[in-house]
Design a protein around this nucleic acid. Structure first.
Lengths: 240, 240
DNA sequence: GCGGCACATTGATGTGGCTCAACGTCGCGC
DNA sequence: GCGCGACGTTGAGCCACATCAATGTGCCGC
């Protein structure tokens, strides 16, 4: 794990934004070094233990966040408890889509998460004063929108096998340079994967087994997937 | 149909943006009246006949558009032809999500469409010079993202019946003030609806029939749905 | 008015993924 | 090291929706 340097707890201000490990990935990259102090003055930090709720859909949105470490699941619920995970976030990602002063989705920590927090009102002022931040946010939401559309295609039109392969390959792309073989780490549970792909845990499990029996993947443990031949997997997933 | 005033064909510049019917709904609302001439100088217009492709996914994105009349379907395709419609657009909506200089989806006219066109490079300059435009675009993409997440919930976790009811109610909300009863117009085909909801045309048709037999809706023709009792429909769809 | 075509509906049958249930497996507290 | 609970896998049967096929229905050109 890539250890961050900002471990101060909630309320701690004036952190060293200029030393932030994930600065270049986050919204903050758009803040000029000259404005760094200003940024540092309005951010605080929060540590969230694994499994804990960060906020729920519909909560009044006072704060927005950047993730400095760990992974987060975003989800929407139906009244009867059915859940759709709309995305997984990782370090550098922006957290806190707001419509009508409320969060548009719930968010939970998958593993131990460190957040960089900012009052929404402060962000709005920052955005107003530093135009590149707005550009950066616009770019990020453009990418997110493209990903959302891709996910709609997956949910509406792909088979279980295609869904799982697409998911694994997306994870692979996000991860490393891909040589002949590669391993991806899946911090989330089978239930999370199922709720992300619009399947049940049983189907996810069975599909993992089927892919293993085909020799496309290896499963050292429930949270790791090894690809002995990345190209073969991409070919198998060609119809995606 | 709300007749627009800008009927000039492609290439016509210096249109009267200040007289545009849908100005207040579109991105252009963020352009001050003082800058109207500047806006008018960079837009042109295009008429698209019903059914025609506006652009395809992956096309190099030179232009972006505002829809001044008509309705548009956005879609993504799998290599074998399976299609997912990711959204329907109407007058006032912004058209042309771009990633890596290419359109992120295909777009086709459902009925006769009038577009207000702008070179991407001109939009970028406009955005740079007129900050409120950026805000407006950010707001619009925030809303679109929230809608996309809602659609993921629908695609991944709702039944056919719930999908169709959600779809109809969303259409109703977009349309008018809703008194006791109401009618929504569906310009798109059953195939379009199916590809939007992740179903087949047969299932869409059967579900329409089932709702009609329950007395929740009436179907004067294939492109209109009447709700004799809006509240009853909302109650029936409560589990959404 | 009538043939032809696109689109929608309806029916019969098939099946992918869900449901229900049992059984592993791992990690943790005591 | 042992019991327990959370999580994952596997199996058997079922069902919501897909597929395949036939039959309306409305519209347009002639």
């Amino acid at each position: 794990m890539n250890e961050g340097r900002n471990h101060k707890v909630s309320g701690a201000s004036h952190s060293r934004c200029d030393q932030c490990d994930i600065r270049h990935k986050a919204m903050c990259a758009a803040v000029d070094t000259a404005d760094n102090d200003r940024l540092a003055a309005i951010v605080s930090h929060r540590d969230i233990p694994a499994g804990q709720v960060i906020f729920e859909e519909g909560d009044t949105a006072d704060y927005v966040y950047n993730i400095s470490a760990g992974e987060v699941r975003l989800y929407k619920l139906l009244p009867d408890g059915r859940r759709q995970i709309t995305g997984f976030l990782r370090e550098g990602d922006f957290l806190g889509l707001v419509t009508d002063d409320a969060y548009a989705y719930g968010a939970e920590a998958i593993n131990k998460v460190e957040l960089c927090c900012m009052r929404l009102s402060n962000l709005e002022r920052l955005v107003a004063d530093i135009p590149p931040v707005r550009d950066r946010l616009l770019d990020m939401s453009r990418d997110e929108l493209a990903a959302a559309q891709e996910q709609m295609l997956l949910l509406g039109r792909k088979t279980a096998r295609e869904k799982l392969l697409s998911f694994l390959l997306t994870r692979l792309d996000h991860a490393e340079d891909h040589p002949e073989e590669a391993t991806v780490h899946l911090p989330m549970s089978r239930t999370d994967i199922a709720d992300y792909l619009g399947l049940t845990i049983e189907t996810v499990s069975r599909t993992f087994t089927a892919l293993r029996e085909e020799g496309l993947i290896e499963l050292p443990d429930a949270h790791a997937v090894h690809f002995p031949d990345v190209k073969a997997v991409r070919d198998a997933a060609a119809a995606m």
